Simulated assay, not measured.
Amino acid sequence: MAVLPRPGSAQTFTIDTSTFLNEEREHLKIHPKQEQENESSDEEELLTDEDGDNFVPEDMIFVPSDVLYNNKWDTLYIRTGRMDAAGMSDSVLLLLNNPAESPFTFPYKGKLISKYGPRGSRFHAGMDIKLESGDTIVSAFDGKVRIARVMSGYGKMVVIRHHNGLETVYGHLSRILVNINQDVKAGEPIGLGGRTGRATTTHLHFETRFRGEHFNPGKIIDFENYTLLTDTLLISKEFWSSVRGSSPMVTDGSGPGPKYHTIRSGDTLSKIARRYGTTVNNLCRINGIKPTKVLRIGTRIRVG
Rank of each mutant, 00 (worst) to 15 (best):
V3P: 01
S9F: 05
F13I: 13
T19L: 13
E26H: 06
H27I: 00
Q36L: 14
S41Q: 12
E43K: 12
E45H: 11
L46V: 13
D49I: 11
D51V: 01
D51F: 06
D53N: 10
N54W: 12
I61W: 07
F62P: 00
V67C: 02
L68I: 12
Y69L: 11
N70G: 07
R82M: 07
R82Q: 14
T105C: 08
L112V: 15
L112N: 03
I113V: 15
S114Y: 00
Y116E: 09
G134S: 05
I137P: 03
V138D: 10
A148V: 12
R149Y: 11
M151D: 07
G153C: 08
M157H: 06
M157I: 07
V159E: 15
H162A: 00
L166V: 04
G187Q: 09
L192A: 08
L192N: 05
R198S: 14
A199Y: 05
T200S: 14
T200L: 09
T202Y: 04
F206R: 03
E207R: 02
R209P: 10
R209N: 12
R211W: 07
F215Y: 15
G218P: 00
I221E: 04
E224W: 03
I235S: 04
I235G: 00
S242T: 10
G253H: 04
Y260E: 01
L269C: 08
A273S: 12
V280I: 06
T292F: 06
R296I: 15
I297N: 12
R300I: 03
